[in-house]
Structures are given as structure tokens and as C-alpha cells.
Nucleic acid binder design. Structure first.
Lengths: 198, 198
DNA sequence: GCGAACGGTTAGCGGTCGCTAACCGCCCTG
DNA sequence: CAGGGCGGTTAGCGACCGCTAACCGTTCGC
């Protein structure tokens, strides 16, 4: 019975592409890139299978666009926080809070970025890695400004550790959103600023 | 040309099963469970494809055994550290150091446990989750003993955050092993013990 | 010294997956 | 009101994947 889907009432919320990316992110986060089929993504947005190819060139392109845009958003947001801050301490606080908010509000995107970088095509991976490197670099500079005598490799390792701490978010959910944000921000800043030796 | 493989010279290192599990863990960590084929695992240990079924009932069984044994090892090691410690502070320090050492010495196992829990069969996942829950419970008790007025849900969330911090290890590698261990241990303990409010 | 068990091999089956082809109805524009 | 583009549909192709079948050489206990 070929019932035409009777085009839903205007509403014009997020575009089809964005809908698809959100659904795919959710699925990739839960089952892994190769554990999700084209048909799974399609039916998650109410269309079926190959219709996705009206919006994306391939499944790889979906992952690529997903990870590229999240990396750009993190980098842009991070740089904005840094340049609007007045001192190194404030910059570090803003950076942490920004990352915490992003992770809490986009848990599946964060999960996908953490787990599925290796499933990108080579050109996409290069692009995403470049963006990530710039983001880490920004963190490292701020940390070195805020923490007196910390060596550069230590600052880099500490930055990665703090990313791990903050990004652990999607796997817990024992506190409500704002308590969680406060806890993660406090723990991250404490670990960065008050850890001896460093 | 059916050349018989000429059985390598005794040597009797790790058993075949262990070899296979180690190779599979490495591959699962890098490409994801569904991104790795039976033939990939086989050729990583020098045999080819279906020979794996002389050692494991299925690909799922490999993942199941991998995650079960790592969860048991963590739980057993954690409980041992707790019961051999004299006070709450010491127990927490030992627990952190134990987890840090484990993560640094078994990066791909840690990665697989973090990322591929969802690819387990239902019975395996139940078993692994039960073991993990007991491990987290042990941490929560120690944290509540060591940190005066911390509420239980906060302690739980903080434990997960610290796991994230420590398990971020495989993705960095800017310091040598021992410096990394010291840094992660110090950051984790600082975050747990010196974060205000908590 | 024989036979079973062990741990390999290759061939191939059935199912799934990414993607293309071919088609179609709706809506907008000239 | 013709026609093109947009965003859907189903059918199906070719490749790959997990796993089994059938076979075989080596080793070891009796």
C-alpha cells in the first residue's frame, strides 16, 4: 500500500540534513560507525535507506561532516572565549566551562568524536586532526600562562587528561545537568591549577 | 602451493588464545568491533581466518572473554588494594595508582572496554556490567570515606570523571610512562580530594 | 606404530551492507 | 499549465563478512 507520506505541517524546524546528522550521531555513538546501517539511519528520521543519498554523497561523508563541524565549533568557541577573557586564569576558567557545556549539551557528538576518528577517510581525518590540534594548542598556551612553571609536554598531557575527564560525561548521568556542569568544571580546574609538580 | 607452516621453534610464550585476544584487542581498539574482520584478526597472529574457531566459539565470544577478564582483573585488583590499605586516604591513593598503572600497561584493553560494551551479547553485557558496577561501588565507598561530606551521587559522578581522566591515557603519549603515571595519579587525587563543595 | 586429538588449511554458503538505478509525486517557476 | 528539480520510493547488484564443511599434517599416549 503505497501511502504518500502527506508532507508534515510546515513547522520548518531543523533542516533535513541536520536531522539526519543528529540521528546518525546518536546511532554511531551507541553502536559504532560500522555497527550502524544506512537503513538504520534512514528509519531513525522516518525515511528509508537510500533516500539519504539525496542529502549526502556517502555514509563516510556523514561522519566526515559530523566530525568536521564539531571540531570547528569547538575551535571557534574556544578561541572566542580566550580572546574575550581578561587574564590567563579567567581564560582557563572560561575554556573549561565552555568545553563542559558543549559536552553536556552534545553527548553523542562528543562520543562520536572520541571513538570514531579512526573511521574517517584519510582526507577527512587530516582535516579533523588539524582542527583538533589547533584546539589543543590553544588549551596548552592558556594552561602554560595560567600555571607558572609547567613544562609544555606536561601541559599537553594535562589538557588531554582534562578532555577525558570532561568527556566522560555521556557515560554517567547521576546528577542533574547543572550540578554535573559545576562538578566537572570544579574538578577540571582543580586538577589543572592545584596539582603539585605539574 | 600448500606449504606446511613448519611449526615455530617451541618458545612457548603466551598461549595462542592470549595471543589472539591481545591482537584482537588492538584491532578492536583501533577500528571498532564491527570494523574488524575475522581474517584481520587471524592474519595479525599469523594464521588465517577460520582457524580462530579452533580457539573461540565466535567473534562475539572473543569480545566477551576480553571484557569479562579485564573487568574481573580490575575488580579483584581494586578490592585487594582497598583491603591492604590502612586508612581511607591510603586506600584512595592505592586505588588511583592501581587504575593508572593498569590503563598505562593495557591501553587497548581499556579502550575496548570503554567503547565496545555495547557490542557484547546480552548475557555477556550483563555479566560485565555487574562486575563494573561492583568496581565503581568500591570506588564510591572509598571516596566517601576519604572525602568528608561528599554526597553519594556526587561521589559516583566524580568516580566516573576520574575514570575518564585516567583512561584518556591511550590517546596522548607525550610523556614517558612513569612521568605520565605520576601526572595522572596526582591530577586524579587532586581533583578528588581538593575540589571544593564536592 | 596406530589412531585420535589438535590446530591448521581452502572452498563456499547465506546474509548483510553500501550504493545505484529506475521510477514517481509534489511544488514551484515562467 | 508545462516542465524541471527535489525528495522520496523499491529492486537489486556486487562485495564482504561470519561461520561451517571438508580435508590434512603433526604430535603424542597406549
Amino acid at each position: 500500500m503505497p501511502v504518500p507520506p502527506a508532507a508534515e505541517p510546515a513547522k520548518t524546524g531543523p533542516s533535513r540534513r541536520e536531522q539526519i546528522l543528529a540521528a546518525a550521531a546518536e546511532l554511531f555513538a551507541r553502536h559504532g560507525f560500522h555497527g550502524v546501517g544506512i537503513d538504520d539511519i534512514g528509519s531513525a528520521v522516518g525515511i528509508s535507506g537510500p533516500a539519504l543519498y539525496r542529502h549526502f554523497r556517502s555514509k563516510d561523508a556523514m561522519l566526515g561532516e559530523m566530525l568536521t563541524s564539531i571540531s570547528e565549533e569547538l575551535l571557534d568557541g574556544g578561541l572566542a572565549r580566550i580572546s574575550s577573557a581578561t587574564g590567563a586564569q579567567e581564560a582557563l576558567g572560561d575554556l573549561v566551562r565552555f568545553h563542559v557545556d558543549f559536552a553536556l549539551d552534545n553527548p553523542s557528538l562528543i562520543t562520536v568524536q572520541e571513538r570514531n576518528l579512526g573511521n574517517l577517510t584519510d582526507p577527512d581525518r587530516r582535516k579533523v586532526r588539524a582542527l583538533q590540534r589547533r584546539y589543543v594548542e590553544a588549551w596548552v598556551e592558556v594552561i602554560r600562562d595560567a600555571v607558572p612553571a609547567i613544562p609544555e609536554p606536561t601541559a599537553r598531557a594535562a589538557a588531554h587528561a582534562v578532555f577525558g575527564l570532561i568527556n566522560s560525561t555521556p557515560h554517567s548521568r547521576h546528577l542533574d545537568r547543572d550540578q554535573m556542569a559545576d562538578l566537572l568544571t570544579a574538578m577540571a580546574l582543580t586538577a589543572l591549577v592545584h596539582t603539585p609538580v605539574s
